[in-house]
Design a protein around this nucleic acid. Structure first.
Lengths: 262, 262
DNA sequence: CCAGAAATACAACATATGATGAAGTCTCGA
DNA sequence: TCGAGACTTCATCATATGTTGTATTTCTGG
């Protein structure tokens, strides 16, 4: 069960047998949480960090006007809120989207992990930064991709993220979200999500029924939305020992001065 | 000069005289960088972390279609790219928007700071998380606020962030960006930024001329865009010793099931 | 297996924002 | 001081997405 976490963290770097043991010990006590339930809420000062073992969890914010915005999606193997170990006031909430198995880890355990287990600390730090990179990509997509591409991009991202933890088959995966959930992640209206899904279906880019997504031609879908997976940092670090990557092979895009975008 | 950094970090927690000395030593050698110049670029594997001492720096991404998206703004006292110490491939670029003074700090120095100076490590960790919180707010604003509110929100954010480092007066500050820069931060078109600025001016919410922004009535502007500064985490941490904040005083907003937003 | 509730689908209309182009205005270096 | 490029301003038109409402399908608990 904890495998998902370990599979994920080992992308960040090698963990020793001792590290694994420590992680297993820290996440012994899991509990079941029903769908659509808050784990921690905005303006809370929570005492525990949550780790997802199964199911989907989201981070969300409610704006004064009442809209819900989902700013992140956590899949098995992801930590939900490592920040609470540092920032003491939450500026958002965490909730399950589906029934979930989660582990609660106390602040003090996290502190122990980070202070006494350098490789784990490094891996956690890495995980936080990847989360931030994903958020950045969502942000950029919201600003720069139109609805269809945005949805497609999310589907490609999930294909990769779920593969890493062994929850996707080659051509598809379970997608247990509501179109409303999708809308709140993508910054769209539920109606428009629906419209756009129809469109993607009509183009044979996706097959989505019964809460299962199938991607007939992943390459085509990726091309459709310009999916560049670098931001997920899923490729294990290059070995330090190997020859340095061919230098200056990538011509810098530079900074487009005065560029009027679009 | 380094004061800005120290002012900012001390929000995160107390630093000792020794910590301050270490920080000063690490940032002795600053250099001037002209406006609109890349500090590190997408797909780089940079060796140094940048700290801004004066001027404005941005983090940006160029999408395949060529648009530039600014995902973060760094003001004096901010680190630009602490991640490079952990993630070895950049998924975005960093560039100056105005002439700047920056310090370059090597990975190894950062590693030393984080491994041997727990309070500094904590403060850096804190700074990263705040950056993420800001990005989250930008994301939510992009999805949920319309153009005028979005711009106003950015102006309120900057008012606070600049105040912290002593770069804003009570009623205004220097805003040396181009409308194109603003557009790229806000996910808008330069034309629309312009239109919207006109609108804010006509409502007497802002006075913007000669690259200086004045806010005649900050409270009004904040109300206009529903500015809730929690996400900046600028309030010094509550003392552990003081009485716990009145419990359960905030009724949780809970998770609105099936809510159709907007 | 049914009934009610969610979720999805579809249609018609409204609007914020994008796109383009052209005319002013500023700014800064030679 | 001048001129040229860079910004800003403005107007017009195009369109992706929002809004509202209702029908249809799917799910779920009893």
């Amino acid at each position: 069960m904890i495998d998902t976490l370990i599979r994920k963290l080992s992308i960040a770097g090698e963990l020793t047998e001792g590290d694994l043991k420590t992680l297993r010990r820290a996440s012994l006590h899991s509990r079941q949480v029903p769908a659509r339930q808050d784990l921690t809420t905005q303006e809370d000062r929570p005492e525990n960090v949550h780790l997802v073992l199964s199911g989907f969890v989201c981070r969300y914010k409610i704006l004064p006007k009442g809209q819900r915005h989902i700013t992140a999606l956590m899949v098995p193997g992801d930590f939900c809120d490592l920040h609470v170990a540092i920032l003491d006031e939450m500026d958002h909430s965490i909730a399950t989207l589906t029934p979930c198995t989660v582990v609660e880890i106390s602040r003090s355990t996290i502190r122990d992990l980070t202070e006494n287990h350098p490789r784990i600390a490094h891996a956690l730090w890495w995980a936080t930064l990847v989360d931030e990179a994903v958020l950045r990509e969502w942000f950029v997509g919201l600003a720069g991709r139109e609805a269809a591409e945005r949805i497609a991009h999310l589907f490609c991202e999930l294909l990769l993220r779920l593969s890493v933890v062994g929850l996707a088959e080659k051509d598809g995966y379970a997608l247990p979200f509501t179109q409303i959930d999708l809308a709140d992640m993508l910054g769209l209206t539920p109606v428009h999500v629906n419209r756009t899904l129809q469109h993607l279906r009509s183009e044979d880019l996706i097959v989505l029924k019964k809460r299962r997504l199938e991607i007939p031609d992943a390459a085509r879908l990726k091309a459709f939305c310009d999916f560049v997976p670098t931001y997920l940092h899923h490729t294990p670090r290059a070995k330090k020992s190997s020859a340095p990557p061919t230098q200056a092979t990538n011509v810098s895009l530079g900074m487009r001065q005065n560029q009027t975008h679009r």
